[in-house]
Amino acid sequence: MKESDGAAIQRVLAGDGDGFQVLVERYSHALFRLAYRMTGNEADADDVVQETFLRAYRSLANYDGRAAFSTWLYRIASNYTLDRIAATKRRAEILHPLDQKPEGEEDGRAWQPVEQAPGPDRLLLSGEIQVRLAAAMEELTPQERTAFTLRHFEDLSIEEIGAALQLGSNATRNSIFRAVQKLRRNLAGWAGVAS
């Protein structure tokens, strides 16, 4: 029988480090998917996962159980990733203020969805779909991208997303709505998507 999150947490708090290993194994893949979709980079996603678990371990005594443990982890990962994205953007603006690309020009670093082996019927269009979706996702704000990813890729509820992003239900819905509207607009001329 699979050990519950609560039981594993109690083991960790009692000094049993193996309890935390259970949690790492249970949630590392989902956290990696989220971080990769937000950063578009495997190395950055690995760093986010490691830092998330490090911060969770250090703060485990503060976990109050009001939200699911997975939601708490998503909040830590989302906050850390958003901070990384903002810091990277600030550094780029400080270091290269004159090298900024004109609006709409690609910089070569595009958001890429997690690779999955497509079936034979999808191979023809998969590359183009990824490029177009990546470009459209880059147009979203970090909060919109996170909310959209948690809703449509991770199937979290509005309440879970709100808890992870520390937003109210209405703000969460609005972030997802704005993301969907922007994606529809950006993908409207392709594949018959209506705006």
Rank of each mutant, 00 (worst) to 15 (best):
G127Q: 12
W190Q: 10
Y57P: 00
A164K: 02
R58M: 15
G15R: 10
Q10D: 15
S70M: 14
D83T: 11
V12P: 02
L60K: 01
L150K: 01
V12R: 01
E154G: 08
P113W: 02
F153Q: 06
G168P: 02
G168M: 05
F153W: 09
T146E: 04
Y27V: 07
D83G: 10
L125Q: 05
G15V: 05
A7F: 13
A136G: 13
T149A: 02
A134T: 12
A30W: 07
W190V: 07
I161K: 01
S4E: 05
T71P: 03
Y63P: 00
E115P: 07
D64G: 15
L13C: 05
V114Y: 05
S28E: 11
A14N: 00
R178E: 15
D46M: 06
M38I: 02
E144I: 00
M1W: 14
L123W: 05
G119C: 08
A134W: 01
P118K: 04
A194Y: 04
T146Q: 04
D18W: 06
L31Y: 01
T141N: 12
E128R: 15
L165P: 02
T39G: 00
A68L: 08
N186F: 04
S169R: 14
R151M: 11
T146H: 00
A30S: 14
R26G: 03
L31Q: 10
Q100P: 09
